[in-house]
């Protein structure tokens, strides 16, 4: 098992408000899981906790990644071991070029894998080779990280980073929010191009539209910090027709 989340409880670090309240999730290599849920269910918190953001504190439960205790690791260690977070709002870093940023990043991950670092020329070649995958403009590498990018360009840049880093698990934190249909297709194409028997995805989203293009193997509904229902792709269809209300109601009455 690649990711095993067991009875995970997490609260906002400042103030202690509980968000995740006993979440269980198992992801095997090659599987694509979708996490859906209404606003405030804890979707982004789940992504943040798995990636190691300090804004949240784990109060109970466990999470292991590739057999190791994920929650003990620093964010950079998680990334080095193959966990990738595509941000809901990719961050701008003025003055740091994509080239420098990603060369440093790629070499950090290569170091973890015991591979020699790529020099400027080898990295350039590698970076160019991955560019066509996401229709990136060739001047991307010389521009500052996400500075002056449109919302769609930022998400695409995150997808491009994912392609360069070849992670084991890709967590997509509402990557589709704020994207028009064309940008959404680019993101979906990027994901589909990177799908493999070894690589898993956790697609966190509020809308079904992205999932229409990605076709997840498993769909989970997150509500009030727990997964309240799981199923296959047909669950997406059901949610589209009925909304979250029915599932939430049956969950509440079952309590």
């Amino acid at each position: 098992m690649l990711l095993n989340v067991d009875n995970l409880h997490a609260a906002v670090a400042e103030g202690g408000q509980p968000i995740l309240k006993g979440l269980n999730l198992q992801v095997n290599p090659g599987e694509v899981h979708a996490i859906m849920g209404p606003n405030g269910a804890g979707k982004s918190t789940l992504s943040s906790v798995l990636a190691g953001r300090e804004d949240y504190e784990v109060t109970d439960g466990n999470a292991s990644f590739d057999g190791e205790d994920l929650l003990e690791m620093d964010p950079e260690e998680r990334a080095r071991k193959g966990l990738f977070l595509a941000f809901q709002y990719p961050v701008e870093i003025p003055g740091v070029s994509n080239k420098l940023f990603m060369q440093t990043s790629v070499n950090a991950i290569r170091e973890e894998r015991g591979e020699p670092p790529l020099d400027m020329f080898d990295f350039d070649e590698y970076a160019q080779s991955r560019m066509s995958l996401l229709n990136m403009h060739s001047d991307l590498l010389d521009r500052s990280v996400n500075v002056g990018f449109s919302g769609g360009e930022k998400k695409r840049n995150d997808m491009y980073q994912m392609a360069l880093l070849e992670p084991k698990l890709c967590i997509m934190d509402e990557t589709d929010s704020g994207l028009d249909i064309d940008a959404l297709k680019v993101v979906a194409n990027g994901v589909n191009a990177l799908r493999s028997k070894e690589r898993s995805f956790l697609v966190v989203t509020h809308y079904q539209r992205l999932l229409d293009y990605i076709k997840p193997d498993f769909v989970h509904v997150l509500y009030d910090g727990k997964i309240v229902q799981s199923g296959g792709f047909e669950l997406v269809q059901q949610l589209e027709n009925e909304g979250y209300d029915q599932i939430i109601q049956s969950h509440k009455s079952g309590q």
Partner: peptide
């Protein structure tokens, strides 16, 4: 910015240096 770099495997000190240098 620091977390973004960390999430790409870049160590915290290195991220600080990178951002400071660029600034």
């Amino acid at each position: 910015q620091i977390f973004y770099a960390q999430a790409r495997g870049i160590q915290r000190d290195e991220a600080v240096r990178m951002i400071t240098r660029a600034f």
